Amino acid sequence: MKNYHSILIIAFIALLGCEASKPSLDKNSRDDSLTMQEVAASEDEIKVEPNPSKGQAESETNASSHSFEPKAEAGSNSGPWSVTALPSYSEEEEVKVSFTNSSDETIILYNPMRKNVERLKNGEWASVNVVYCRCRPCPAPPETREIRPGKSYSVKWSKKEDGCNENKFTQSECKPGTYRISISYRSDGARSVESIEFKI
């Protein structure tokens, strides 16, 4: 009987020892679990955290590309017209000036058959005689002509001044210098003059 009581006491002491060590194991396990969660949370934060320097660099690169993006140069525009002409013409070239209606409305051109050519002389513009009909009775030219949006009106000039001598048509070469061709028109209810200068 005495041996039986001794065995019970030893078993009881062993049981108490297991129970005493169990909370320590649970604590260590819980600490380990918390540590793993903190590491996982830290890794998640690193993954989703934006890179300010990279984003700023990309933003500056995009802004720079837009700021320095080359743009195409526009044509020569004046009022409702887009004018095409050379700044100077060689001796062999015929002068040609094109006026294109770049507006959204129809422009009324006055005296479309007449070429209004002038030469700059002593700081003033002097008329150069250019006729549309050669020294004979000619029908009256049309007074106006409509130039619709996107359509063009061209003036060609041989760089010669016209004349009539005893009803005979004559021409003389114009001297080198600065000249201009002008057109008279009505747009937006107002009458205006458009001129383009060039050299020969």
Rank of each mutant, 00 (worst) to 15 (best):
P52R: 07
P52Y: 03
P52L: 06
S53H: 11
K54D: 10
K54P: 02
G55S: 13
G55R: 12
Q56V: 05
Q56C: 07
Q56T: 09
Q56I: 06
S59V: 11
E60Y: 00
E60M: 03
T61Q: 14
T61C: 12
A63E: 06
A63C: 04
S65T: 04
S65A: 07
H66E: 10
P70G: 07
P70W: 01
K71D: 06
K71Q: 13
A72C: 08
E73P: 14
E73F: 15
A74N: 04
N77H: 09
S78Q: 13
S78E: 12
S78I: 12
W81V: 03
W81N: 01
W81Q: 03
S82E: 07
S82V: 02
S82C: 05
A85Y: 03
L86A: 14
P87F: 02
S88Y: 10
S88F: 08
E91T: 11
E91D: 12
E92C: 14
E92I: 14
E92Y: 14
E93T: 12
E93C: 13
E93V: 10
E93K: 14
E93M: 15
E94Y: 05
E94R: 10
V95M: 02
K96P: 00
V97A: 02
V97Y: 00
S98N: 04
S98V: 10
F99E: 00
F99D: 00
N101L: 03
S102Q: 11
S102F: 07
S103K: 01
S103Y: 00
S103H: 01
D104Q: 02
D104N: 04
E105W: 05
E105N: 15
T106P: 09
T106N: 13
I107Q: 00
I107P: 00
I107Y: 00
I108W: 03
L109W: 04
L109E: 03
L109R: 03
Y110S: 09
Y110Q: 09
N111F: 04
R114I: 15
K115M: 04
K115L: 08
N116R: 15
N116Y: 14
V117W: 00
V117L: 01
V117T: 02
R119N: 12
R119T: 11
R119H: 12
R119A: 14
L120R: 05
N122D: 11
G123I: 00
W125H: 01
A126N: 11
A126K: 13
N129W: 06
N129T: 15
N129K: 15
R134K: 15
C135V: 08
C135S: 10
C135A: 09
R136S: 15
P137W: 10
C138F: 05
A140V: 11
P141W: 04
P142K: 12
E143I: 09
E143Y: 07
T144H: 05
T144A: 03
R145Y: 14
I147S: 08
G150F: 00
S152Q: 07
S152E: 03
S154Q: 09
S154C: 05
S154G: 04
K156H: 04
K156N: 08
K156Q: 08
K156V: 05
W157T: 10
S158I: 09
K159E: 01
K160F: 12
E161P: 05
D162E: 07
D162N: 15
G163V: 08
G163W: 07
G163H: 09
G163T: 08
E166H: 09
E166V: 05
K168I: 06
F169I: 02
Q171M: 12
Q171A: 13
S172L: 08
C174Q: 10
C174I: 04
C174G: 06
K175P: 02
K175G: 03
P176V: 06
P176F: 05
